[in-house]
Amino acid sequence: MDNKNSKFEIFSKGLIKENPVLVLILGMCPTLGVTSSAINGLGMGLATTFVLLFSNIIISIIKDLIPDKVHIPAYIIVIASLVTILQLLLKGYLPALDESLGLFIPLIVVNCVVLGRAEAFACKNNVVDSALDGLGMGLGFALALTILGAIREILGVGSIFGYKFLAGDGIIGFVLAPGAFIVLGYMVAIAKKLKK
């Protein structure tokens, strides 16, 4: 378990093989809600990575102190505190991102990816492995959100990361709600195909 290969395995499985968005279908709300542009997708992905990394580390440290019966409330307190810290940091140092993500920042608390990893991984593994798992899952989440955001931005506005390279208006439907569902549907189908 302790050789380099398995460490890399723990980190990389979140990126593609067990991608939380495309394979596990978790954390759908922010996935669909904030990805009207690539930069928003990336910002949300990295914000979630921050919470996921630290929640996994803290929970794997305190896992032996918490009675089984109250482990869920304990985890929720830890996650909610991390989210609030993130919220304050964003407000202070990246107010533009905070504004465009809006309600979805406090909603990281109920993102099933975060609680799911705490339950499935961090409460059974050591600190280093949990940190790697959190980082991998978080970056996998960020990757999926950025791709989804990029596709929607290219089709809907004709730009990428705010850089406009197509003249004209684009297909507005892709920036709006229906486009989010439809693009994600095709992405999941492609991920399914690639996995086989």
């Binding site: 918490i66 009675p67 109250v70 830890v78 505190s81 609030t84 940091l89 202070g92 140092y93």
Partner: peptide
């Protein structure tokens, strides 16, 4: 246990709040 966790977490959040208050 729950109270201890809640207290430590809240203290952490409050510390960050104090640190970022002026910047915000």
């Amino acid at each position: 246990v729950l109270m201890l966790i809640a207290m430590i977490c809240t203290a952490g959040v409050a510390a960050v709040f104090k640190l970022t208050e002026d910047t915000i």
